[in-house]
Design a protein around this nucleic acid. Structure first.
Length: 306
RNA sequence: GGCCAGGUAGCUCAGUUGGCAGAGCACGCGGCUGAAAACCGCGGUGUCGGCAGUUCGAUUCUGCCCCUGGCCA
């Protein structure tokens, strides 16, 4: 890890992180490394509230627009690319400002998580088994193979159960043996500021942002992506708004229903993001009001510049 | 004004032959290592419209009142 600690600005979606990040990065002469699982995809701009090219020309942004929506960029690959990006920033003698709300991606950068390998054919076989046997039977099998992992994964969670079985099958090691660092949060690695906001203020910002997206070409953006093949189990097709708007274009949902679903999912996302970051003891929290993180940028700069 | 239907959780409603009120959604909380904006789990938050009456006990039965919707004037 680079000797000046990594700087980070985290928090729930719609809290104004990106906006504040420009100012902070300029103040601190930093480059932004996005920690966002959806900003990775090219062409998904409006619905992800991606900083515009003009904004990104002002301050260099990394880990944005590095994959096609038709591919799924896993956390594992994100970690590799993030390390490259960070090395590049360090080689320029600048410091990196991590900005985003994807908790696992954040930890993949600051905590050197060791993601065990995957194998498509093993995965497919296990998924087929799970489909016929059911989640509980797979979970029972995991209990005999890796009791520790099984105790942490809910019996109804097929996806994680299958993944744990897959890891055991390919690596010969129990899935749980890869999670050693999970409960550790090395403080020296990162200086992180977190943005919170009163729940009702955040809810209003989310509703306003969803409406603004729809007014600024989101429907056209999704139409184009669907025509280009977005759909199925692609990561990109599960992004909030894209799934709902595709259904609207299919005539399954009215525009108002799609809008309401977007707001609902975004609020649920914000809650989960907060739950994720809340227990990271490294994060120093700053409460913003209706105006979002931009209004408290002075405090953020002061803390991050240490 | 008359007749009918209804008033129970933030919303839509169920229910109690009279015995501490319950579903879905919303909301809150939690978990998380190669799909993570994914995936999974936990939690009922309440003057049962108001005031009287009957009763050991009323959200439930009775009376009056208030409110909402529909139909008729």
């Amino acid at each position: 890890m680079p000797s000046p600690p990594l700087l980070a600005l985290v928090g729930p979606t719609a809290s104004g992180k990106s906006e504040a990040a420009f100012v902070i990065a300029e103040e601190l002469d930093a480059e932004v490394a996005s920690v966002d699982s959806m900003l990775l995809y090219r062409g998904m701009d409006v619905g992800t509230a991606k900083p515009t090219p003009a904004e990104r020309a002002r301050v260099p942004h990394h880990l944005v627009d590095i994959a096609e929506p038709s591919e799924s960029l896993s956390v594992w690959r994100f970690q590799l690319l993030a390390r490259e990006a960070l090395a590049g920033i360090a080689s320029r003698g600048r410091c990196a400002l991590l900005v985003g709300g994807s908790g696992l991606h954040f930890r993949s950068i600051v905590d050197d998580l060791d993601f065990p390998a995957t194998d498509p054919s093993t995965r497919v076989a296990l998924e087929a088994e799970a489909a016929s046997l059911g989640a509980e039977r797979m979970h029972q099998r995991l209990t005999t193979l890796d009791p520790e992992a099984a105790s942490k994964i809910e019996p109804g969670n097929v996806r994680r159960t299958v993944r744990a079985l897959e890891v055991a099958a390919i690596t010969g090691r129990p899935f749980s043996s890869f999670a050693h660092q999970w409960g550790q949060y090395p403080v020296e690695r990162v200086r992180a500021a977190g943005v919170t906001m009163p729940p009702d203020a955040l809810a209003r910002r989310i509703a306003a942002r969803v409406s603004a997206m729809i007014d600024h070409g989101f429907i056209e953006e999704v139409r184009g992506l669907v025509e280009a093949g977005l759909g199925g189990w692609l990561t990109s097709s599960q992004a909030i708004g894209y799934a709902e708007m595709a259904r609207h274009l299919d005539g399954e949902l009215s525009l108002d229903e799609a809008r309401a679903a977007m707001v609902k999912r975004t609020r649920a996302l914000a809650r989960r993001q907060l739950a994720w970051f809340r227990r990271d003891p490294r994060i120093r929290w700053f409460e913003a009001k209706e105006g979002g993180a931009a209004d408290i940028v002075g405090d953020l700069v002061e803390y991050l510049s240490g």
